[in-house]
Simulated scan of single mutants.
Amino acid sequence: MDSDIEKPAVTWAQMRAFFPHRPLAYHLHALPDLGIVYVKNPKAACSTVLLWLDRLHTGDLDFAPGNVHKEHRLPKVREIGRHKVARMVSGEAYTFTFVRDPLRRFQSAYQDKIVGSSGWRAEIQTALGQEPDEDRAVSIDDFVTALERQDPLVMNPHWRPQHINVMASLIRYDHIGRIETFADDLEVIRAAADLPAVPATARNVRSTKRVDLLADRPDLAERVRAIYAKDLEIFGY
């Protein structure tokens, strides 16, 4: 999805509209010294990309934080300036992001954030009209039903449609990479943006292959496809 077409002017206010309940600055990482902007898309290798960017920015190849989202040393939007970041997205910098097979991303979000972490269940239970109870399990059927009832704009970014997370209707990207071809896409970005070669160490990747939770549930898979229909169309999955 690379393009040589002139990028449209983008304002901070326009981007902010895609994140009505979360700080936009948490999802934009601009590096003026390198001339690049990364738009974070949760559940699409953002931990790995952030560590790669930290290494590019600092030159410290031994940095191994426990939580790269909180401990990275990338410049903050408040340090750069909102208008400067908007100009970078509008054409002053090389802008990229990554996406993932929507059905795989959906399952990863469910397994990591709902099954594996009780703190996220309250959002789903509330959407179902239930009294929040972190100790009560949420089935995958319940998860799908909750997403069907939610406004996609205000969903948690970990399972919100990716075209909203990356503001696809607003931003003209220089490259949109895929997790399925991550190494090749990262090299495309590195070469096109004329970045130095630093290693990209995979973060938060499970060593064992996960079971496809939708393999024997064509009814549920069809409902999930409907939730992420626009992602499937826009990103060609």
Rank of each mutant, 00 (worst) to 15 (best):
Y38D: 07
I36K: 13
D62N: 07
Y38E: 12
D54A: 09
D60K: 02
R73G: 04
T11Q: 07
D62H: 08
F19M: 05
K7Y: 02
H27I: 01
A13T: 04
A13L: 03
Y38T: 11
G66Q: 00
E79A: 06
I80L: 09
Y38A: 11
L34R: 13
R73M: 06
P42W: 15
K70C: 14
A13Y: 06
D62C: 01
L24A: 15
V49P: 00
G66S: 01
F63N: 03
P65A: 01
P42Q: 10
D60V: 02
G35W: 11
I5N: 10
R73N: 06
K7W: 03
L31P: 10
A30T: 05
E6S: 14
T11E: 04
K76R: 10
A64Y: 03
C46F: 00
P8Y: 07
D33V: 09
A30P: 01
T58F: 14
D62L: 03
L34P: 07
Y38I: 06
H57D: 06
G66A: 00
C46E: 02
L53E: 01
L31I: 14
G59Y: 04
A64M: 09
K40P: 10
T11W: 07
Y26W: 12
L50H: 11
G35S: 14
R55N: 09
P23W: 06
P20Y: 15
K43V: 05
Y38C: 13
C46D: 01
P42V: 10
L56F: 01
P20M: 15
L74C: 04
P23V: 04
K40C: 06
G81T: 13
N41V: 01
E79Y: 14
K70N: 11
P8N: 08
P8F: 02
R16Q: 12
E71W: 13
D33R: 15
A25M: 11
V10K: 00
R78E: 15
D60G: 04
L51M: 11
L31Y: 15
L50M: 09
I36Y: 13
V77L: 02
Q14Y: 02
C46N: 06
C46T: 05
L74Y: 01
P8W: 01
E6M: 15
N67D: 15
I80Q: 08
R55Y: 04
W12N: 01
H21M: 15
S47D: 05
